[in-house]
Amino acid sequence: MLHIQNIDKSFDSLQVIQGLSFEVQDGEFVAIIGPSGSGKSTLFQLIGGVTSLDEGAILLDGEAIQQQRGVIGYMPQQPCLLPWRTILDNVILVEELRHKPNMELAKEWLDKVGLSAFQQAYPHELSGGMQQRVSFIRAIVSNKPILCLDEPFSALDEFTRLEMQAWLVSTWETYRKSVLFVTHSIEEALFLADRVIVLTKRPATVKAEIEVPFARPRTEDIRHSATFTALKQQLFTYLKEEAYAD
């Protein structure tokens, strides 16, 4: 379980995060939405130990992990594949930093997502969507207790994006590890997550939290349900309040 406890962070005089607290249960998919520049990527840098906290604590299974790198799995907005490595060698990159990588597991996952034919291909031979799948597999294979995904689909075109959302839902439903997912898209958050956390504008803190009631496995149908529309409306209102607040 990931526990964010009352954290503060500022860059020089700019307060980015203030008194932010929430948690992610084991096997839970939590989405975070918030205005642009509200400090979501900063939050991930804090969890990843890349920048230091001013106040508060970040606990993973009861253990403080601030300042500790390489504890969480991470997937950024850009695929960040190394162009000189084959797909397979890219997938094992994170493991390779720590110990001898598990090639079989990597191949197994590539197989599961239909990319086994591309094991020996280089990233530039793959489409944007395929590259993001590889990036996700790389995060899974790194075998960390929680995955942090920072707007992983926002650089893709609309159609690929919908495709990737459906793909992620079904892949995650067989995998079921804790996920913290940052997005700008209300629909994406509702379609994927068990719970959506809305952040205020800078300095970020939790504005609201909603449970997403849809059962799993989820299908495209839920996008057209009345509940979906109602929740969407509610989240939209929250974000609008933040955008015009002052």
Binding site: F44, Q45, G48, V50, R69, G70, P76, Q78, L82, S142
Partner: peptide, 13 residues
């Protein structure tokens, strides 16, 4: 920069 940031996030020395 994004690749360097990625390497930091995954805990590279």
């Amino acid at each position: 920069a994004e690749l360097k940031h990625y390497f930091q996030m995954i805990g590279a020395s």
